[in-house]
Write a protein that binds this DNA or RNA. Structure first.
Lengths: 348, 348
DNA sequence: TAATGGTGCGCAAACGTTTGCCCGTTTTTT
DNA sequence: AAAAAACGGGCAAACGTTTGCGCACCATTA
């Protein structure tokens, strides 16, 4: 029974008509008579005919496929994003070619090449953490393969991207804590190399200004996102003159490390010490001691937007729009979410 | 600069030689002289030539692409598995076409069709929860597209699969609790419709027999995996005559619900009431009150095995092995892991 | 009646490769 | 010196589609 799939050619031979007629009949082309059209369709379904996409790809110069390159599939943020991307692609009849860079610049470059060879119509990329040169992305320009970056944006000119701005979320977070009566608010920030750290710091400062409070730089400490580094950061904050009663942490992992450490120090979470964090982890719902509030970054939404933009771009291109000079730069505002009611806010 | 990619044909014209010569030269075919070979390669790299994969696919009848269909990309288990699959595929020069069924039988069927049309060389599937008919998978047989199922296995004959057997892990889990001195051990199991529930129950019973203890059916209660249902199950257990001092829960979500509820009831976790669960969640590392031990299901390993099997199958097929009658049926034994030392056991 | 227009379909090129087969030189063998 | 072998390379088919163009036939119109 190991039959090769039926082709348009076989149908033509069996019906003793030409290949082109079969093709047109299957596409309901007006110039084909009703009777032949029906005959063709009948036989096609009898033979279980399905068009060979690879042939169509070759012929049309497009593959209805988008490539997605991101650092780590198993990270909650990205798996949520890819889930959204796949949903979007599916809705618009595209397929997703997936690859992970493992934050390795070399691999990222290879993947871009591979995607190009596979003739993906467009690319969705969240850049590897330690990618320093962006030539591999620039190269794609001359082949007219559009790229939309999301979340991790390279320092390039004239690119499409969607990212999440942490500043407002941070302002809200700090304001939230101020409103709750805290007067000394600490921040365990990430490494200065990440632009996200800058946004958080800016937000913190702006919140202080906005509330006519004075900014104490010693209340912002950095960590490299590891557990030990987080513990050290917390220790430093707790030892400072103006010992904070609330802390904003760079992300949920840091928050959990800090909460764990604080608990060991016999501090009561949300009483002695209150936390606000940035939501990377969906599972925070299931925990007992959690940050009182989180700044949601909407991974699902980011993936969705990015995919939609790319697909729009491709649709334009297919309709013959030659050259667009405008670039999509979508900033999704982060949003403070109180964690008791978080369930209703699930990004999906 | 919007240049279309260079083709083998252009190279041939520029060098005034034939297309076939160029092709062979690029493949280091012995029948091409050194000088022409070098000329060809030089020009090729100058023109930034890259072979058009879609053309090669059409010509060779294979795409070096495997399709992956699973229920939910954003679930930790699957995102871990897909991460492994992508790694394997990459190593063996394959690419991954990804799609999620959202546990919808109809969509799953469409996806199988789509994958077929895209001419994937093979398929990796974790079946949708409520798929009842498997015809869409059977159909692929006649097109000689191999499928390897993983984790969620359909009730079909003659299939390749890799799955995780919970029985041994459960025996170990119960034995572990017995060894710690518990004499009344409860189980919050999943719905009877899931085969995984059966395995867990079997394991529980066997552990009792093995330790020459009598099995009390009232200590096993079911829940539908929701929070409220879990609470009810726990209440039921706590109200039973032989109030358990330890509980085995169906998965980590259930464990967390139960732990939360128990905490509210002023029970001390791991003192008044000890938990053992099944590890679906990588994040359990970050929590304070966690099950004392977990039965690890190795999602990364499952994905890896499944991908390797599929790729082996494809390699065989490509080397002309006509018909294999043997089917891979890989059972990965689950393994009990004490959670303090869990970090070292990370599946990856 | 002759010109016009519509209808229904076929021819063949094109997409970019790979590869079996053939053929003309040169080199080696006997 | 003649035959055989090796070398280097070209021709063309094939993979399965889509689509511009051309053509024959029949039915209108003037």
């Amino acid at each position: 029974m190991r039959s090769k799939p039926a082709t348009i050619k076989e149908i033509a031979q069996l019906l003793k008509i030409s290949i082109s007629t079969v093709s047109r009949a299957l596409h309901d082309h007006p110039s084909i008579g009703l009777t032949t059209r029906q005959k063709v369709k009948k036989l096609a379904s009898e033979l279980n005919y399905e068009p060979n996409q690879t042939a169509i790809f070759l012929q049309q110069g497009r593959t209805l496929t988008i490539g997605v390159i991101l650092p780590e599939l198993s990270e909650a943020f990205f798996s949520s994003a890819i889930s959204a991307i796949e949903d979007c692609a599916y809705k618009r009849n595209y397929t997703v070619l997936l690859a992970q860079s493992h934050d390795d610049e070399q691999k990222e470059k290879q993947l871009v090449e591979k995607m190009k060879n596979h003739r993906v119509d467009g690319l969705l990329v969240s850049v590897s953490k330690n990618t320093s040169s962006y030539q591999h992305f620039e190269n794609l320009r001359q082949y007219d393969i559009p790229i939309v970056f999301f979340d991790r944006i390279p320092a390039m000119q004239n690119i499409h991207y969607v990212a999440c701005n942490m500043e407002i979320g941070t302002i809200d977070a700090v304001s939230y804590l101020l409103k709750k009566g805290h007067r000394s608010i600490g921040m365990i920030n990430g490494p200065a190399t990440l632009s996200a750290s800058g946004e958080r710091k800016e937000g913190y400062i702006k919140a202080m200004i906005k509330n006519r409070l004075k900014f104490d730089p010693s209340l912002i400490v950095s960590c490299d996102l590891t557990e030990t580094s987080t513990q050290a950061a917390l220790d430093e904050l707790l030892a400072s003159k103006r010992k904070p009663t609330a802390i904003v942490t760079f992300n949920d992992y840091v928050a959990l490390f800090a909460i764990k450490h604080a608990t060991n120090l016999k501090l009561k979470i949300n009483e002695d010490l209150e936390f606000v964090s940035y939501a990377n982890l969906p599972l925070i719902n299931y925990m007992e001691s959690i940050p009182a509030a989180s700044v949601e970054q909407f991974p699902y939404l980011q993936g969705q937007k990015a995919a939609d933009i790319l697909l729009d771009l491709l649709a334009q291109k297919h309709q013959g729009v030659t050259e667009q000079t405008a670039y999509y730069k979508i900033i999704i505002e982060s949003q403070l979410v109180e964690n008791s009611s978080m369930t209703g806010f699930k990004s999906k």
